[in-house]
């Protein structure tokens, strides 16, 4: 009776698809300082519609780990600016989103930058720093 099972369970994982886009404020931050806090703040985030957040029990400001065969990153969860029907989540195109993109282009040379399948789960870990994405 005394055992708190939840403590040993991993945070639940969900399969999601990410599409990427560009944002003028992020482009501005990139022009100014691609190593800066502002660029990181805007880039290392996943934007989710309210229905998806409710379904998965996420709140804006939570941190989430995104993982697939290509990589794994921790980003902040944020609400989309406008109401989205759900089923797809969004990230601004950046080294963070690119770390989840496969190099398999079926020979055509164009990676699937805008169609990324991965798993998402809540985490308490820190947001992946840029330095980590460019260390090989």
């Amino acid at each position: 009776m005394g055992i708190d099972v939840g403590k040993f369970l991993k945070a639940p994982e969900y399969d999601i698809r990410i599409t990427t886009y560009r944002d003028i404020f992020q482009i501005e931050a990139l022009e100014q300082d691609r190593f800066g806090e502002e660029y990181k703040k805007l880039s290392a985030a996943v934007m989710m519609g309210k229905s998806d957040m409710d379904k998965m029990g996420f709140k804006a400001g939570d941190r989430a780990r995104l993982t697939n065969n290509n990589g794994s990153i921790v980003v902040e969860v944020r609400a989309t600016r406008r109401e989205e029907p759900g089923g797809i989540v969004f990230m601004m195109n950046s080294p963070w989103s690119n770390s989840l993109v496969s190099d398999d282009t079926r020979g055509n040379g164009i990676p699937e930058f805008k169609n990324i399948s991965c798993r998402i789960s809540l985490t308490k870990e820190d947001i992946t720093p840029l330095e980590k994405l460019i260390a090989f």
Binding site: R34, N70, G71, P95, N98, S99, L100, V101, L130, L133
Partner: peptide, 25 residues
């Protein structure tokens, strides 16, 4: 910054010459 990270290890392993106004990744 703009390529899938999965192809970058080779880039990091060969000589790279960078011409740019700014410091980049």
């Amino acid at each position: 910054s703009s390529l899938p990270r999965s192809v970058l290890p080779h880039l990091a392993a060969i000589p790279v010459i960078c011409i740019d106004p700014c410091v980049t990744l």
